[in-house]
């Protein structure tokens, strides 16, 4: 049974998993990064305090974060179909992945930016910097190392979610693990896919941390 078609299938699984993970991470950052910035700057006594916007964003983030991924996956299938045209396969899985990951990334970005010393922002304000200039020239560049650590954590979390999408035929290694290991009791196939997932997590985490430490000029 460990013939060439099996290897081909695993190869395709790796490709799909990487495709889902990286693409979802990217799209989730498109939403999550501004969301995280907004969470910080609308806070009381920050750059653009706005109680309403801040509370609404926090509520949305908390609600999305409290729904388990597997339930979210099924729950937003109508949305997925509306956007992608189908609810199965790896492209379709990107939709729930982005929906689940964006608020998570928002929180990661928020906590990274909050690590920044308030004095630095104050110094920028004293030089006449505008809120937008402070976001672009101070908050993001100064927290770059921490943001990269966040990206490593986020992408590996998304990878974990993508594997869960196997339950709804979402493609990728998780799908293979469930089809063979769970439905047909072929534990060896499941074992191999799990090992492959572990390796990919290690690699993603390693790349993220490497970039983060290269960016860090504080030491």
């Amino acid at each position: 049974m460990w013939d060439s078609t099996m290897f081909e299938m695993l190869g395709k699984g790796i490709g799909e998993t990487l495709y889902m993970t990286l693409f979802s991470t990217l799209l989730a950052y498109v939403i999550g990064l501004p969301l995280g910035i907004a969470l910080v700057v609308t806070e009381k006594e920050s750059l653009l305090p706005n109680k309403w916007v801040n509370s609404i964003l926090n509520i949305i983030v908390n609600i999305t974060r409290s729904v388990p991924f597997l339930i979210l996956l099924v729950f937003i299938q109508p949305l997925t179909r509306a956007i992608v045209g189908t609810a199965i396969g790896s492209t379709a899985t990107i939709v729930p992945l982005v929906v689940a990951a964006a608020p998570f990334i928002g929180r990661m970005v928020e906590s990274s930016i909050k690590e920044l010393d308030k004095g630095v922002i104050e110094a920028a304000l004293s030089m006449g910097a505008s809120p937008l200039q402070i976001i672009w020239k101070v908050m993001l560049p100064e927290t770059k190392p921490s943001l990269w650590v966040g990206a490593a954590i986020s992408s590996t979390t998304i990878l974990g979610y993508s594997a869960m999408a196997g339950f709804t035929s979402g493609g990728g290694l998780g799908d293979i693990a469930i089809r063979y290991g769970y439905n047909r009791y072929q534990t060896d196939v499941m074992f191999v896919t799990v090992v492959l997932l572990v390796v990919i997590v290690q690699v993603l985490q390693g790349i993220g941390m490497k970039i983060a430490s290269k960016q860090d000029k504080r030491k």
């Binding site: 010393d117 630095v120 110094a123 910097a129 100064e142 000029k217």
Partner: peptide, 24 residues
């Protein structure tokens, strides 16, 4: 707000904790 920002450019400040940009 904009006039104030412009005015601040002719009134600089230094701090006890320096407040430099660490990544620059």
């Amino acid at each position: 707000a904009k006039e104030l920002r412009n005015t601040r450019q002719s009134m600089s400040m230094i701090f006890q904790q320096f407040n430099l940009l660490m990544q620059r």
